[in-house]
């Protein structure tokens, strides 16, 4: 299975993502943001980081870069696209998933492990996952998911919420919400469920001795789903 990770100026999780994808069997290529064409891929990943220094709004500049036309076309034709952290911000700015990511509610950069509850397994990203609650890492300043009431209704009606912040038992509530996101939303799909944006970093949880292995579970399962 082939994957491509896009590197924008200021991306800093692109190589981590490369290591993770390669470790679990993807043949991964790195793609520069200024390229026009994507290599043949089964999965495109927009990595975390601080593309363009987060100028104007996080992800806004990167969403207009040359390669994004190809990414948007790839997504519109049903290709799998995953945006992590800054990649999620780029996806919302590109209009590939609904809503927007605001400054964290308490104005702090948050860097810690969190638990997320997988809500919808009828999609390529989470199908057959044998865990309901995963431990991932978050590191962001603008992860406070926001959308209009009309958008929220549409998102809920179409089962587009991918993961929620929760405690280790899978309970979602205000106390466990790290950044003020509406409904504890940590990740969201497009309507067709072939595009996933999420703030947590699964690529940081792929080594038993360094972190934990919930990222490994996620990537192994993803690879099996794509095969």
């Amino acid at each position: 299975m082939k994957s491509s990770v896009i590197t924008f100026p200021g991306s800093n999780c692109d190589r981590d993502m490369d290591v993770a994808l390669t470790k679990f069997g993807f043949k991964n290529k790195m793609v520069w943001h200024d390229d026009q064409e994507l290599p043949k891929s089964d999965l495109i990943v927009l990595p975390g980081g601080f593309s363009y220094g987060d100028y104007l709004r996080c992800g806004s500049m990167a969403s207009k870069s040359k390669i994004m036309n190809s990414v948007i076309n790839f997504a519109k034709s049903g290709g799998l696209v995953m945006g992590i952290c800054n990649g999620f911000q780029i996806l919302v700015e590109a209009g590939l998933v609904p809503g927007v990511l605001l400054r964290n509610k308490y104005l702090q950069f948050i860097c810690k492990n969190v638990h997320v509850k997988v809500d919808n397994k009828e999609n390529t990203f989470f199908k057959n996952l044998d865990k309901q609650v995963l431990e991932f890492h978050i590191a962001h300043n603008e992860g406070n998911y926001f959308c209009t009431n009309d958008q929220l209704k549409e998102i809920e009606d179409n089962n587009q919420i991918a993961i929620y912040y929760c405690d280790q038992n899978g309970n979602t509530n205000d106390q466990i919400n790290p950044n003020g996101s509406i409904k504890n939303i940590a990740g969201i799909f497009n309507k067709e469920k072939n595009v996933l944006g999420m703030m947590p970093h699964p690529e940081r949880m792929i080594d038993e001795s360094l972190s934990g292995e919930d990222g490994s579970i996620f990537f192994k399962n993803l690879l099996n789903n794509i095969k």
Binding site: L56, R57, S60, K64, V100, F146, C147, T148, Q151
Partner: peptide, 8 residues
Amino acid sequence: KLLANLVI
């Protein structure tokens, strides 16, 4: 197209 995000 760029300067404002009309969602917010």
